[in-house]
């Protein structure tokens, strides 16, 4: 029997949740015996090659491309896990939701103290994806199956959840592994 496949994505996140996956340290060598990695920025398949058992999603959706990637993951993965606060509730990037997008762009590209922008044009080239009006948590875009709290969730929590799912056991997370900071 072939090994189950795991895919990961970083949407509007800081990559800290991916770093926390790597913080399982030497257990990563056990993990690569248990699973095959598919599309992931860590060992980076740039597209899905096969159907995956588990998709881990870091970050919410702040632009059209994030939405596209998330939908692609829903289509290709049996189980989707929202990894960390950004995926669960938008996190720090969602702080922009209380402010008109125009003001955020103006601060970055027109009014900042180091800005040099004689044409006063805000980046708008067709090559860069369109920003959404606000940052959306994953479950507002597609159905999510599990949520792992923390910013980021501790490596031990990620390990416990993954090994439980891969061996068909219920996920048991002791209190210390649930961090809300």
């Amino acid at each position: 029997m072939s090994k189950p496949r795991v895919a990961t994505a970083s949407l509007a996140g800081c990559f800290g949740c991916h770093m926390s996956i790597l913080d399982i340290d030497d257990r990563i060598l056990q993990l690569i015996e248990l699973v095959e990695f598919d599309k992931s920025p860590i060992d980076d398949y740039k597209g899905f090659t096969q159907r995956c058992a588990i998709g881990l999603i870091e970050g919410g959706c702040c632009n059209a491309e994030n939405v596209h990637v998330l939908q692609d993951f829903r289509k290709n993965c049996d189980i989707l896990i929202a990894l960390g606060e950004c995926a669960i509730c938008g996190g720090i990037p969602a702080m922009r939701n209380t402010i008109p997008l125009r003001e955020c762009l103006a601060e970055a590209y027109l009014d900042g103290p180091t800005v040099h922008n004689p044409s006063r044009r805000i980046p708008d080239d067709p090559e860069i994806p369109r920003l959404l009006n606000r940052v959306y948590p994953c479950h507002e875009v597609v159905k999510m199956d599990y949520y792992l709290q923390g910013c980021p969730p501790p490596a031990d929590a990620i390990w416990a959840a993954l090994t439980a799912l891969l061996t068909n056991r219920p996920i048991q997370l002791p209190y210390e592994l649930l961090k809300y900071d």
Partner: peptide, 26 residues
């Protein structure tokens, strides 16, 4: 694009060291 410079306005200054690192978890 995040817009961090704008939305951090109004936050108390002592939050900055813990807040701003969420720009990059690497």
């Amino acid at each position: 694009f995040r817009g961090f410079e704008r939305y951090i306005r109004g936050r108390p200054y002592w939050e900055a060291p813990v807040l701003v690192q969420r720009l990059c978890g690497i």
